[in-house]
């Protein structure tokens, strides 16, 4: 039983990270129907920016988190303007390949500057651990879960209570109609990228602190899994991304903990395929019907 509880703790911490990355995915996909492969790499950049802010800028946890979020927001917008905007009216596959290209570009530019070696993260949070029976919960896990929840509530607020959020929802439903209603589609899309990328940046810093290890290729797999989480939760749905992230995190932990850890990644992908076939719109997604 204690082992089970410990695994739940492990799963929730891992899942919160996926959830934070998945939020960006779900927003971007919701609005321009593009799998932003570079999203995982924005998360990687967030981790490195946080690293630099703490090491060279001597910042604390929250200022570093903020710096990383702002930098990633800017990078996200630049990527959108430079690489994705010219392709908005071309085929899906062209956009997807561009996204892959941007992803490779970010990875290898980073590798060019910082090298391929993993780096450890500077310690900014106290390494305190709480023992509940034999279940161990450490400070970083609490920070991760709390930050994820706080950011999600913030996002939910932005999307549902602000004008920008309203514009985002309008554009995601029908960009042409939104434009006719006087919504600036371009800037709305930029906002979406900015917010999504900022969240990825936050996830990067949290992961750096939690696992104490960052490298230029760290974004690939979490990026893909976060996408799975977004699909499971329902593309476009913010609570869906959160639930999806937590589900994938917990599922991975349980496959490793009670099954064979080697089939952990395979299980995630298999899960994705099963969801796509049974319920393509995801848990909380809206059903859309293809029109002729």
């Amino acid at each position: 039983m204690e082992q089970f509880l410990q695994q739940v703790v492990n799963g929730i911490s891992l899942g919160s990270i996926y959830a934070l990355i998945a939020l960006g995915y779900t927003m971007v996909y919701g609005i321009i129907k593009l799998i932003n492969f570079a999203h995982g790499d924005v998360y990687m950049i967030g981790a490195f920016v946080g690293f630099a802010a703490i090491t060279y800028g001597k910042m604390g946890f929250f200022p570093a988190l903020l710096v990383a979020m702002i930098s990633c927001a800017i990078i996200g917008v630049v990527i959108e303007k430079v690489a994705y905007k010219p392709l908005r009216n071309s085929t899906r596959i062209a956009a997807l390949i561009t996204a892959i290209g941007v992803s490779l570009f970010l990875e290898y530019v980073m590798m060019f500057f910082v090298g391929a070696e993993v780096r450890s993260y500077p310690k900014v949070l106290t390494e305190k651990a709480f023992h509940l029976g034999s279940v161990v919960i450490n400070m970083q896990q609490i920070y991760i879960v709390l930050t994820a929840i706080a950011l999600m509530i913030l996002l939910q607020f932005i999307v549902h209570k602000t004008k920008t959020g309203k514009a985002m929802r309008a554009v995601s439903i029908d960009p042409d109609a939104a434009q006719l209603m006087g919504i600036k589609v371009d800037s709305t899309i930029s906002y979406t990228f900015a917010i999504g990328s900022a969240f990825a940046g936050a996830a990067g810093v949290l992961v750096g602190i939690y696992y104490n290890s960052i490298d230029p290729l760290m974004g690939i797999l979490p990026g893909l899994k976060a996408f799975v989480a977004a699909v499971f939760g329902g593309i476009g749905s913010i609570p869906g991304a959160m639930i999806g992230g937590l589900t994938i995190g917990t599922m991975e932990t349980f496959v490793s903990g009670y099954g064979n850890s080697m089939y952990r990644d395979a299980a995630v992908f298999l899960f994705l395929i099963v969801i796509l076939i049974i319920k393509p719109s995801g848990l909380l997604g809206k059903n859309t019907r293809e029109k002729v």
Partner: peptide, 15 residues
Amino acid sequence: VRMIFYALVLVIIMI
């Protein structure tokens, strides 16, 4: 710079 170049070519061609 090889991979950087490869990535850039990819993006430029697509655009």
